[in-house]
Structures are given as C-alpha cells and as structure tokens.
Simulated scan of single mutants.
Amino acid sequence: MTLPPLGHYLGALRESTPLVHCMTNFVAMNSSANLVLAVGASPAMLHAIEEAPAFTELAGALSINIGTISPSWAKAMLACADVARRRSIPWVLDPVAVGATAYRRELCEQLLALEPTVIRANASEVLALAGLESQGRGVDAAPTTHDVEAAAMALAKRQRCVVAMTGERDVVTDGTRHLHIDGGHALMPRVTTLGCGLSAIVAGFVAASPSAALEASTAALAAFAEAGRDAGERARGPGSFQVELIDALYRLTPAALSQAGSTCVTFKGREGDQP
C-alpha cells in the first residue's frame, strides 16, 4: 500500500472547512471545539433530542463521545447516529471507558449497530468492544497485551469500519490494511480531553475525504502526533502544552504533514502478511 502524501487530506479539510457535529462530554466541549477550529474545520456542539438529529443532516460529519452520558444524551446520540447512517454522513464513535459499566457497554452495542465510519479508541476500549478480557480502568487505561493490534483488526473487520487506536504508538486499520503512527509527546497523556478532541478532528478529516476513511484517519492521527511533537518542544508543562498544541495545529501546513508522514507512518501490510 502506498499512501498519498498526507498533506493532501489536511489541504482538503482546509479547503472545505467541514461542519463537524460534536456530541461530546461536558469536560471536552471547549477544548474539542478549539482543536477542531485550529485544524481548519468548523465545530458545533448540540445534544438536545429536539434539534440534534435535524442538525446532523446539515453536518459534514458526526462525532459521538460517550464520556458523560445520561439517558437523554444517549437517546439523542442514537437518533443522530441513525440519521448519519441513513444519510451516508460519516460518523466517528469514541467509546470512552466502554468497559467500565454495563450501561456504557449496552449503549455502545446499540451505537455499533448504526455502523460508525471510524471507531477512535484507546487499547482497553478496543479490547472491550472486541469482546476480550481487559483490566482497563477507563479513559487512562493502556493494556500491554500482545494481541491488542489483532483485536483492533478483528473489530474493524467485524464492523466493516476503520479503527483508529491511539496510544504510545497509534494503529489505524480497516481489518485488512493496517498502519502504525509514531510521534506525539510525553505530555499528551497529562492533559485531559485530548483524545476527545482528536475524535472530532478525525471526523473533520473524514468529512473532507469521505471515500478514503482509512487514509483520512491516518492523516488526522499523524497531524495530531506532529502537532504534539511541536507543542512539546515549546511547552513548559501540561498547561502550556494545551495552548501550544492548539497553536501547532493551526501552524501545521500540508507540506509539513506530508514530510512528517513520510517518517512517522509505517504501513504494516495486509491481512495474512507477516508483522
């Protein structure tokens, strides 16, 4: 597999400035909106069942994050995901701490039935969705089991979607093709809601390139990793890192992303290839 220069997908996003409907959690709303704006898309945060499904019809993509769910939000999320499925609007599922409670697992089972375009999750969340045993504590869990990557591929194949699994090394797979992305910075896990914002950014990239969800998701994760690397070189700690990350995403050019992608993204092959 030969990826086009990843800057192509950042350029497509900035040219189209897609509207991203972000159904995210209370903690992440402000930071996610700023990250989406910085990369070049347009965020909107709506949750009310009375208007959110109709708004989804106007959006270029939908991002659903279950971090602070409630019955009313869950009902609206399911309705919006159904609109996205029926209208062929790409949507991203961020199954925050899905393995922590039965309520989260049941909601994610319902959302998975509505065919997300991309699942953006950490390793413990991927394991939970794939039905494997996990000792994950929730948002910060990072299992080191040797079969996490295989679980991501199995989940992608079962759901016929892209799985973008983030961690110390990111993995993007559609169940057949899989890629590794290296980069970022050690301060990234020290700032809350960055993963939530990344899910919304993935939605923006896929909205701009809907026929290339794997490649667009890879570009989104590579852009975030490169911006994180840049921000880490300038930051003095977690507080300044968050501000620097917004600025780094804003400064990132398609040419710089293509150059970074040529070194930080590794194609690991197709199903059946030797790792």
Rank of each mutant, 00 (worst) to 15 (best):
L6P: 06
H8L: 14
L10T: 12
S16M: 13
T17M: 14
V20L: 04
V39W: 04
P43W: 03
E51Y: 01
F55Y: 13
T56N: 03
G60L: 07
L62M: 09
S63N: 13
N65C: 10
A79R: 07
V83W: 00
I89T: 10
A100L: 13
A100Y: 06
R105W: 05
L107W: 03
L114S: 03
E115F: 00
P116I: 02
A121C: 04
S124N: 09
L132T: 12
Q135I: 07
V139K: 09
A141I: 02
A142F: 02
A152T: 02
M153T: 02
A154L: 00
R158V: 01
A164M: 03
A164T: 01
M165E: 01
T173A: 00
D174P: 04
L179T: 07
G183L: 03
A186P: 01
A186M: 10
P189D: 03
R190E: 14
R190I: 12
T192L: 11
G197I: 11
S199A: 15
I201Q: 03
V202H: 06
F205T: 08
V206Q: 11
A207P: 08
A208L: 11
S209A: 15
A225H: 04
R229F: 08
E233T: 14
E233Y: 08
A235W: 09
R236V: 14
R236T: 15
Q242S: 15
V243G: 12
L245C: 09
I246A: 15
P254C: 05
A255W: 01
S258W: 08
G269H: 11
G272V: 12
D273P: 04
